[in-house]
Design a protein around this nucleic acid. Structure first.
Lengths: 200, 200
DNA sequence: TATGTAATTTAATAAGTATCTAATTAGATG
DNA sequence: CATCTAATTAGATACTTATTAAATTACATA
C-alpha cells in the first residue's frame, strides 16, 4: 500500500519550518548552519527536519569535508504533489471504467474464466482462440503487483501453480504487452498497453 | 502570507484516516454514520476529521433533515495539490527572470531612474520618450502592493509625493496596463500584462 | 596528537493530535 | 410533548512531534 508514502509526503510538508527550508533551498544548496541561522532555530532542529524531508525524498545531500549541503530533489517535489489526487480518484475511475465495459464483454469474460480454470485457479489448457487466450492471460497477469520488479525465476514460480508450461505463458505476457523485460527483470506494463480482447 | 493555508492543506492530508475518507467520498456523498462504519471509528472521530478537511476546503457538506452528507470539493483538491510547488519555486523564478534581463536593459533602467528622480525619490518630469516613460511608470507602480485593492484617493495620495500631477500618472497606470480599475477600485495587474519597454 | 568545526544523537519538555466514551444539541416524527 | 436519530461537544488518554541544551561523533587541519 502506498498510502504510507503519501501520508509521509504530506506530513513532511505539514510544517511551516520545513516549507521555509524548501523555499530557501530553491535558491541553491545550503548547509545546516546557514539554514539554522536563516530560520532562527538551532542546528539540531535542522537535522530533525532534514530527516523528515529526506524520508519523503524531498531533498538530497552532498558532503564536502565537514559540511553537508542540502538541495531540493525537484523530481519528487513535482511528482508527489499530484499523487494524492491520483490516489483519491483512482478507485472511482476504475469503477467507472468497469461500468463502461459492456454487459456482453463481462459475460464472455466470466464464462471463459469459469471454463478454462479449475475451482482451485489452475489453468486447464491455454485457449487456442486469440480472444479467449487474452482473457486468460489478463486474468493471470492481473495477480502480479503493479510497479514491482520481478526476476525471471519469480515469474516462473508465480506461473507454475497456474500452468506447468510457465515458459510459454511468460513469453505470451511479453508478446501481448502485459509485461516488459529489461536485463532479465520483468515488470507489469501500464494497463493502457495491454492487448485488448474487447475489440476483437 | 498564504503559508498557513498550505500548511493546513498538507496537515489535512497527513493522516491515513482522512485520506481514506476522501477515497470513499470520491465514490459519492456519504453521511457521518456510514463513514464511521466503513472506517471502523466512532462518529465523533468522523466529526473531528471532517473539521480538519473542511478547514482545508477539501470537502463540502449538505444537510437533509438530521443527516449531513459530505462530498469532495474537487476544485480545491486539484488546485491545492500543486500550490506547494508554486510556493517553493516562486521566489527563485522571479530571481531567474531578473538574471535574464539583459545588461544593456539594466543599465538603461538604472540611468533613467537616476536621471529622472531626485535622490528623495521625487519625479523631476515625466519623460516624453515612451520607453523612458514606461521605465519611470514601472518604477513607481512597483511600489504598490500586489493583490491589494486601492481607492482612487489612496492612489492619489500614493502618487502625490512622487509627482504633483497625480491625475496624469494615475491615468498612465491604467493606459499602459500596469493597473486596472473597476467601480472606482484600483488594483495592480499581473506583471505579464504590463507594457514592456524592453522591446521598444 | 590536539584542536576546531559541522552535524548528529540523546534526553527533556511543551504543544499538538487521534481516538474514545459520555453528555449534549438539533431536528424530525409519532 | 416524548422519543428517536445524527451530529457535535467535552473531557480524558495515549501518542506524536517540534524544539532546545548538552553530549557525542565525524572530519579536517595545524
Amino acid at each position: 500500500m502506498q498510502l504510507d508514502k503519501i501520508v509521509s509526503y504530506h506530513k513532511a510538508l505539514a510544517d511551516p519550518t520545513r516549507i521555509k527550508m524548501l523555499i530557501i533551498l530553491a535558491e541553491g544548496e545550503r548547509n545546516g548552519q546557514v539554514l539554522a541561522e536563516k530560520l532562527h532555530v538551532t542546528p539540531a532542529t535542522i537535522t530533525h527536519h532534514a530527516t523528515k524531508l529526506r524520508e519523503a525524498s524531498l531533498i538530497n545531500e552532498r558532503r564536502d569535508k565537514n559540511t553537508i549541503y542540502f538541495s531540493l530533489n525537484d523530481y519528487f517535489i513535482h511528482n508527489n504533489a499530484t499523487a494524492i489526487v491520483e490516489l483519491i480518484y483512482r478507485n472511482v475511475r476504475n469503477k467507472r471504467e468497469e461500468d463502461v465495459m459492456l454487459e456482453s464483454h463481462k459475460k464472455l469474460k466470466e464464462s471463459v474464466i469459469n471454463n478454462f480454470f479449475t475451482t482451485e485457479g489452475r489453468l486447464k489448457q491455454i485457449p487456442a482462440q486469440l480472444k479467449k487466450k487474452l482473457i486468460v492471460l489478463e486474468h493471470v497477469v492481473s495477480q502480479l503487483e503493479n510497479g514491482r520488479k520481478y526476476t525471471e525465476k519469480e515469474i516462473n514460480n508465480f506461473i507454475k501453480p497456474v500452468h506447468e508450461d510457465f515458459a510459454t505463458i511468460r513469453r505470451e505476457f511479453i508478446m501481448h504487452q502485459f509485461m516488459y523485460r529489461e536485463n532479465e527483470i520483468y515488470e507489469l506494463n501500464p494497463k493502457e498497453l495491454w492487448a485488448r480482447w474487447e475489440t476483437l
